[in-house]
Design a binder for these strands. Sequence first.
DNA 1: ATAAAGGTTCCAGTAAGTGGAAGGTCAAGG
DNA 2: CCTTGACCTTCCACTTACTGGAACCTTTAT
Lengths: 128, 128
Amino acid sequence: MNIGEVSKRSGLPAKTIRYYEDIGFVTPARGENGYRSFSETDLHKLAFLGRARGLGFSIEDCRTLLALYEDQGRASADVKRVAERNLMEIDAKIADLQAMRATLSHLVESCAGDARPDCPILEDLGRS
Amino acid sequence: MNIGEVSKRSGLPAKTIRYYEDIGFVTPARGENGYRSFSETDLHKLAFLGRARGLGFSIEDCRTLLALYEDQGRASADVKRVAERNLMEIDAKIADLQAMRATLSHLVESCAGDARPDCPILEDLGRS
DNA sequence: ATAAAGGTTCCAGTAAGTGGAAGGTCAAGG
DNA sequence: CCTTGACCTTCCACTTACTGGAACCTTTAT
């Protein structure tokens, strides 16, 4: 399978797949012409990675998850630990963004948004 | 004022202040010894930047906001537009993260997290 | 024969800093 | 006078997870 088909079937851009080869996630064989030749297993791994990344796992998390995925004897506790840490990080990000959102939407609401120069948003940012 | 004091009073790391000089936000004078010498205005600008960044405005947004801040004749509508766009981006990020959170917390809850190898998290990530 | 589509490598850039090395300067203590 | 430690300087590399583009090669279709 050439990279184009893998890209279509995994949903990852070809550039990303080449990058994932660079960082050691897959090691496709090479044809005589130098083209990468992917196996079904490679495709499966790449799709796995795409889904894990979509859930906010970092590349390093993915490395761990992939190793666990391929280890038939792993304990589910190990996977759960990684997932829970990711969940906590996501919660922290959401909380940060919600705090930002609250302040900012308050400012936006209090700004007339017309042609006059006085603006509570700038006043707030500039308060000494 | 040396960079250390500005750092303390603005809350920004000295490294960040030097970076902000690099990208043209401030242009402090230099003493005979080569040390940066900041004015009160510089300090005020840097504190403004720190607050704007804390609200999630990008560096480019900050450039716009700073220009508007220094333009006494600006229309508040111009500021509001930047703020509203930022708000919408924040909302989109929150929505993304909440979708991730929902899926992931569901998976975490369905995983026993014990020594056994079967793990719904990996099963889901590996579904073909 | 040629053109389009797909493949290759490599270099550079993104956002917004952070870390660290090598070295100059300043104020205080002995 | 010397040294120590805090503070300052520049410069280079690294971070995350890719993405864009140039220059070039191969395959397929017309």
